[in-house]
Structure formats: C-alpha cells, structure tokens
Design a protein around this nucleic acid. Sequence first.
DNA 1: CCATTGTATACCCGAGTGGTATAGTTTACT
DNA 2: AGTAAACTATACCACTCGGGTATACAATGG
Lengths: 154, 154
Amino acid sequence: MQLTQATDYSFRVVLYLAALDPGAIVSAKDISTHENVPMRFLLKTLRSLVKAGILRSYRGPDGGYALAKQPENITLRDVIEAVEGPLYINRCFIDEDYCSKHWTSACPVHRALGDVQRKLVQELDKHNFADLLAHNRQDQGKNSGRLLVSVSTG
Amino acid sequence: MQLTQATDYSFRVVLYLAALDPGAIVSAKDISTHENVPMRFLLKTLRSLVKAGILRSYRGPDGGYALAKQPENITLRDVIEAVEGPLYINRCFIDEDYCSKHWTSACPVHRALGDVQRKLVQELDKHNFADLLAHNRQDQGKNSGRLLVSVSTG
DNA sequence: CCATTGTATACCCGAGTGGTATAGTTTACT
DNA sequence: AGTAAACTATACCACTCGGGTATACAATGG
C-alpha cells in the first residue's frame, strides 16, 4: 500500500518542469543532477511518462524533455498510473479469478474496497501540478522568497 | 499501491468470525478449509491479528481463535494496519531522511499526499465489519436466502 | 501423560523494485 | 557527409519482500 520510488521521483520531475517556462526543454542530465535522481534510472522512468503522454521527448543535440500538457491538466493520479499502471488497491479488482470463491459482486469487502478506491482516485484527481506550484509559491512569499524550483517530495 | 494477499485473507477471516455467534471459538484448521487459505500461512497471519488485539487465541484442545472486539469496532483500516503496519502511501511519511532534499514541510507534493492519505484513512475507518455483514445479509434476502457465511473478497 | 491445539523461528522461492550496462537511433550543427 | 549530443531499447543484476513451508516447542483439557 505504498507508492514506489520511481513514482516519487516522477512527482519531483513533473513539478520541476512545471515550474519552468511553458514548453521549456530540459535534458535528462539536467534533471538528474537537479533532482538528485540516478541518471539511468531516471531515463527509464521518463519513458513511462512520455508513453503516458505527460511528457514529450526531443532527440538530438539540445534535446530533452518537456511537459506535453498544461500543469493544471496533470494530476497526481496521472503520474502514479503512468509509472505504476492502473490503480487498484486490491487484486480482486484486477483479476476476478484471483478470488478463490468468485463471489465478486456478492462480496461485501469487495464492495467496500471499491468504495474506498473510488474516493481515493477522486482525491488524487483533485491535485494537479498547477495547484501544487501555487502552494509552493505561497510558501516562498511567506518564508524566504528563495526560489524553490527544485522540490522534493520528502 | 496495493494491499497484500495476507490482508485480503484477513478480511475474509474477520468477516467469517464476525458472522458467527459472538465469542465463538474456531480452530485455525477450520478457518483454513472454510476460507481456502493455506494453513501455515494463515497461522502466521492470524498472529498479527492477535497481536493487534483484533482476535484472541486459545490454546489446547478445542482451542482456536475468536474476535476480541465487537464487529462494529473493527474497521478495514484496523485489519490493514494489523497485517501491514501503519498506513503510509509514501516513504517520506515514514522516514523524513528518505527524501534527499529534506524539505518535507515546504514540499507541496508531500502536503498533497498527506491530504490524500488522511482522506484514505478516514474512508477506511468508515467501514466496520458489522456494516459489512449487514450488507451481506441484505444481499441474501434479495437473492436467494442462502447462507453466505463463507465470504470472499474477490 | 498424552493428544490437540496455538507459538516461535527459521527457511525457501519467485516476483518486483531499484539500479546499471551496452548498443543503438535520431537530430542539429558544421 | 560526419560527428557529437542527446534520447531509445533491451537486457541484466542485486536486493527486498510477498507468499508459503518446515520443525520444534509450549499450553491446555481430559
């Protein structure tokens, strides 16, 4: 019941890109040093984000990555599902055959968990990266005014 | 971001016990065959539930397990945390040092995830096993009247 | 004292997470 | 064209953890 490290990295990466000028292209190396993510691992993770349509990649010299959407159109859920696949809190939602009894519809636990999952997804959908940035900027004003472009999730 | 199989088993076990007469003692073997859970694995899992105060165990002949609380005082969250430990959707909630940047409080992702987690826990707390049983009984009335004591989560 | 239960500890296997290596392919620039 | 700077694809490795098993032990009732 925990997000993977790759997902956590991805949050940082998207937030980092969202804080830059719209459409800005940044190399993987740049992101790696800036966000403290191992280069090779980052590359692998970035591909998931590209495949999911969250980032665009540009090859060749001066290539790199940029957001493929507006920050307000990228939610926490989008990033999670891009990296980890569709969100299911219990196996019986993925594979009906998983349960040895096959009483999916009649099972009260299944129903309750479905309820919980729906709420969870709703909640994750509420948070987009424009909002996250806005919160960040608020803090800067309140605290120091120092540029907190490089943001961690910890 | 998924519950373990042990947790899923535990849901079934608690629901099974909750459906019996209050205080009824059932042997692990009985539970194992009834709920289709490998004996040895079940025993290990049951210990977690005992340690968490959800079940009581009785040794010796005619020993076994019984609920240690009323079903309405056992929630989905209780069972999850009994088996998997405290519920944290991201590592930075467990270990502040996990994040390479140590900006926990200033991090907007951390804040947003904290928000989500709070809602998730709230939601899990809403579902107790008395309610789950009630739903189950409703279905029986509607469908067949057949006794659905042995319930799966799938 | 013995059979029937649960308890404790330790081990095993496979899958998945986290990370690395290597050999490409695309593109801009000269 | 050629070359260097980027991303891409594939495969590999170490380690952890989930799922499950084995063995020896402790408590309890008859």
